[in-house]
Amino acid sequence: MNPALLTTTDAVDPVFKFIIWACVLLLGGITATVIWFAVRYRRSCAPEPTSQVENNFWLETIWIVLPSILVLAMFYYGWAGYLTLRTVPKAALPVTATARMWSWSFSYANGKTSPKLVVPVGKPVVMNLVSSDIIHGFFLPAFRVKRDVVPGMKNHVWFVADKVGSYDLFCSQYCGKGHSAMITTVEAVPEAEFAAWLEHKEAAGGVKKSDGARLAKEKGCLACHSLDGSRGVGPTFKGLYHKQTTVLQNGRKLTMTVDDAYIRESIRFPNAKIVEGFQPIMPSIGDLKDVEVDTLVEFIKEVK
């Protein structure tokens, strides 16, 4: 990789070191002084106060001026590091991260999508952050970067992985029941391996029927719809097919039987019919291909 390239971690960690050391020194000084005074001037040792001094102009001036200089240095240093985080290197690889309750999906310029963020080592990556429902947070602790994913807002964040490895990716903005499970990983791989991965297409015939379970997990369906009949944020998939259910359509109650067309509509247009007792909070998963929808419908029919 380019040795002159500054990683986001390189930009932030010196600021951490500077501020933490300054804080440790200040806290140590304050603590030591308090303990020293409390011991030295304890009443058994100093029955009467030996001073009634109420102020000292120079002392007070010093401790206004010195901390002011110190905190302004912290401010400047922190701002300089922040600018590095905000300045996207040229030729950064663009990837779109789509956040929804409660999963991530990453799509690349050539149309490839993945539930894990695969990136080439040594090449800066700029993430375009898209939310399909509420506010989430894109957080990579290993790279010291974080940015909220706000509906209707174009946010971005960049980072570069300088070593091969697997790194945690968290949702940092509280988003409800599945917040702490909204985890995936960044897989940093050598550039050649990345290129091969990016061009690799699914096996001929695209999605297989047996992929339904995997898709339901990857696309985040199972975060809300259980397979075992337990009540989640959305209705369970268990025994759903051919079940009598009451839904609200444009505010009117409607009793109907769950069939293929209904499941398909609910995946594409989640808010068209809302099952009674549930909230209209399901996002429409924009990057689903028709064949994937078919696979999901087949999968849901089989959950009994």
């Binding site: 930009a11 932030v12 600021v15 933490i20 804080c23 912290m74 922190g78 940092s172």
Partner: peptide, 14 residues
């Protein structure tokens, strides 16, 4: 102070 400095806040925010 760690939270007030822009660079370090990004990592520890939330």
């Amino acid at each position: 102070l760690i939270l007030g400095a822009a660079a370090t806040d990004i990592h520890v925010h939330d």
